[in-house]
Design a protein around this nucleic acid. Sequence first.
DNA 1: TCTAAATTATACCAGTTGGTATAATTTGCT
DNA 2: AGCAAATTATACCAACTGGTATAATTTAGA
Lengths: 201, 201
Amino acid sequence: MHNEPTSKAERTRQFIIEKTAAVFNEKGYAGTSLNDLTRATGLTKGSIYGNFENKDEVALAAFDYNFNRVTAYIKARILAADHSIERLLVYPAVYRNCLKIPFLQTGCPILNTATEADDTHPLLKEKAANALSFWKKSVENQVKRGMERGEIKADTNPAQIAAVLMSLVEGAFMQAKVTGRNTELRIAMDFLEKMILDLKV
Amino acid sequence: MHNEPTSKAERTRQFIIEKTAAVFNEKGYAGTSLNDLTRATGLTKGSIYGNFENKDEVALAAFDYNFNRVTAYIKARILAADHSIERLLVYPAVYRNCLKIPFLQTGCPILNTATEADDTHPLLKEKAANALSFWKKSVENQVKRGMERGEIKADTNPAQIAAVLMSLVEGAFMQAKVTGRNTELRIAMDFLEKMILDLKV
DNA sequence: TCTAAATTATACCAGTTGGTATAATTTGCT
DNA sequence: AGCAAATTATACCAACTGGTATAATTTAGA
């Protein structure tokens, strides 16, 4: 983490990303207008276009920012644990409360971006797909680490755990978000927890 | 199924819904313009507004149509089976191939609508939430029926089965749609199948 | 077949969209 | 402090947005 001499423009660029990220996640790409961006930042169009090529570039940067926040939050909690089972349990523990976590209040960035962009916006679609790959690899690596350390049963299939974990989280998150209740989310996360605990040797 | 004397307007209304439903599911509510609607139908704005109050009303009708198609398809396959386990297995069997089913090619209507509308469009949001409730009740009823008939273990929790089944389907569908591959979908549906088979007495 | 009513097309509206020159203002280096 | 360069604001653009009167055309019953 070296502090490079940030120019005004670099700082403004970052400021724009931080202020608009929530708007993009809330309203989607098509639903967010340049006007929304100026309102969210207090800047003018000229200023925004001085730092970004177009709306696309802001949206792409905003997605990275949103995804990064989630990743950093999860990562911190994972590193705080040592045992692989504990580490995997971070996912149900976090998403169980997703409706209360500030930057998840407007929904999961991956889910939001994936469902909007899959048929309409190739660049955003690719970002969402890459985010899923990254997440998948992370989970798989935690499982493998657990197996190497003798903490997780040797016959465990990392790819299976990752696919089921991610599907449960995303599917349950969607339901919680749109129904406004977390009954199903709680059930799904309870189930996921048991599944993870069942991996213990 | 009584054939009421359908007026021209009623037929046109239905025609508009059928032709625009796919567009709404593909581009979303905000991403679909009146222009898209005229292009999809070959009709003019005047004609569309002669049959609908506004874009909202078309979108809401289109959602019902989209959801209905999925429901009808699933229902037909469920009724073709008798044993409760077989009936529940319809879900993984169908969604395993979701990328190839014509009216699911633009994604799951519930998922698409839920993620776009949850923060932006109360009416659509409610429709998505109601669709989830309907689906949940259907699964729960199948499980209960199976328990009454002695086909499903007595200690099964219908709400749990419904929540896990729906989360797995929606989460895995999303991944398949955005990555363009069905590896994770297949894994998740395999898992779901085993879970359902495990309910057998 | 005629005709009143129902339906569809035309032509328009004001407001908004994403985007861009250009002018005004800040920066930050010497 | 002075000044060139980088940054931000202003004012504008054509295209498109959802929506609406009104005119033209169909429809279908007598």
